[in-house]
Design a protein around this nucleic acid. Structure first.
Length: 196
DNA sequence: GAGTAGATCCTCT
DNA sequence: GAGGATCTACTCA
């Protein structure tokens, strides 16, 4: 649990690459290896929901301890999955943007209405949540829960396989939209590489 | 291949 | 009442 409570949200975002995100609803296990993340640095980050110390019922969980989920509905369609980091009162979070399917691929195909596995299954934060069956009702769960957690099988991407870039879909954030707070695995087909 | 518009609904102002 | 940490499909070239 200490892993999520360290101060450097960028460092954690980087280290989440290669870890495995697992969901287990009613004995159905699905998992993906994380290949793309974005860091949201709390009150100083205009692109974050917690910018300027905004505190609402929706983002309340971001102000709690690290190691909890923050899930929210975007554009009325997409459920976005975040990992809350840092200590109580510091609303840092990391958005999981993309993953590589590992377990339960058939189940993920069923959830997303696809017929066969292709790189669109878990590309983009909306699709990741959809494939894993994550919804807003799961927001605020602990990552130590047996239903929704991060696993580490010792796999690590090499340093030169990890690339930083500006974040996606946050153009409204002005100068902050240019920060290199997005981390992804170079050349991985599941990374949502479409530049805006 | 690139650019644009529409979907769609919860949350905060 | 407005807008958003997005995705997809469609148009045009």
């Amino acid at each position: 649990m200490e892993f999520y409570q360290r101060g450097n949200v960028l460092q954690i975002a980087k280290e989440l690459l290669g870890k495995i995100l697992v969901t287990k609803w009613d004995k159905t296990v699905t998992s993906v290896r994380i290949v793309e993340t974005e860091a949201y640095a709390g009150v100083i980050d205009r692109a974050s929901h917690a910018w300027a110390a905004r505190r609402t019922k929706r983002n309340e969980v971001m102000y709690g301890h690290g190691g909890y989920t923050y899930i929210y509905l975007c554009y009325g369609i997409h459920h976005l999955f975040n990992v809350v980091t840092n200590d109580h009162g510091i609303p840092h979070a990391i958005l999981i943007r993309a993953g590589e399917p590992l377990e339960g691929i058939n189940e993920m195909l069923k959830r997303t209405g696809k017929e066969k596995l292709d790189h669109t299954l878990t590309r983009g934060p909306g699709n990741v949540s959809k494939a894993l069956g994550i919804q807003t009702v799961h927001s605020g769960m602990s990552l130590l829960d047996k239903k929704l957690f991060l696993a580490d099988d010792g796999f690590r991407y090499k340093k030169n396989e990890i690339v930083a870039s500006p974040r996606i879909g946050v153009d409204y954030a002005g100068e902050h939209a240019k920060w290199d707070y997005r981390f992804f695995v170079k050349g991985n087909p599941f990374v949502s590489g479409r530049p805006r």
